Amino acid sequence: MRFFLEIKDGNKISLAAFWKDMLFKCKHADDFNKVALVTDIQWFRSFADFKDNLVDLDIRAFDNDERLQALNWIAE
């Protein structure tokens, strides 16, 4: 399964929701083969790079202006 996630600046995510999302993705990491994260929020991009080292999953972070590249990559 492929997962495309776009997070715009100004979106608020609670710590509880963030933790729940992380647990879900770790639990179901074998179900995903690619995750494209599109955001200009630096801490999300850093976390995606960090999480990529924790699970056997191809996670790539893209800037907002690279949205089309992210969609092309996830479709490959």
Rank of each mutant, 00 (worst) to 15 (best):
M1W: 08
M1Q: 11
F4W: 02
L5R: 06
L5T: 08
E6M: 10
K8D: 14
G10L: 05
N11E: 13
N11M: 13
K12W: 07
K12H: 11
K12D: 09
S14P: 03
S14F: 01
L15A: 12
A16M: 11
A16V: 14
A16Y: 14
F18D: 14
W19Y: 14
W19M: 14
K20G: 09
D21E: 15
D21A: 12
M22E: 15
L23G: 10
L23N: 14
L23R: 13
L23Y: 11
F24T: 13
F24S: 12
K25E: 11
K25G: 13
C26R: 15
C26P: 04
C26F: 15
K27I: 14
K27Q: 14
H28F: 10
A29V: 09
D30T: 10
D30G: 13
D31N: 12
D31A: 13
D31Y: 10
F32M: 05
N33Y: 09
N33L: 07
K34C: 03
K34M: 04
V35K: 10
V35N: 09
A36C: 01
A36T: 03
L37M: 05
L37H: 02
V38N: 02
T39G: 03
Q42P: 08
Q42G: 05
F44Q: 07
R45A: 11
R45F: 03
R45M: 04
R45P: 05
S46L: 12
S46G: 05
S46I: 15
F47Y: 14
F47C: 03
D49I: 09
D49G: 07
F50K: 04
K51S: 15
K51W: 15
K51E: 15
D52A: 13
D52R: 15
D52L: 09
V55E: 02
D56A: 14
D56G: 12
L57T: 00
D58H: 00
I59E: 05
I59V: 09
A61Q: 00
A61L: 01
N64F: 04
N64S: 15
N64P: 00
D65Q: 06
E66C: 01
E66S: 04
L68F: 07
L68I: 11
L68K: 09
Q69Y: 03
A70F: 00
A70K: 00
L71Q: 08
N72H: 09
I74K: 05
A75T: 06
E76P: 03
E76W: 01
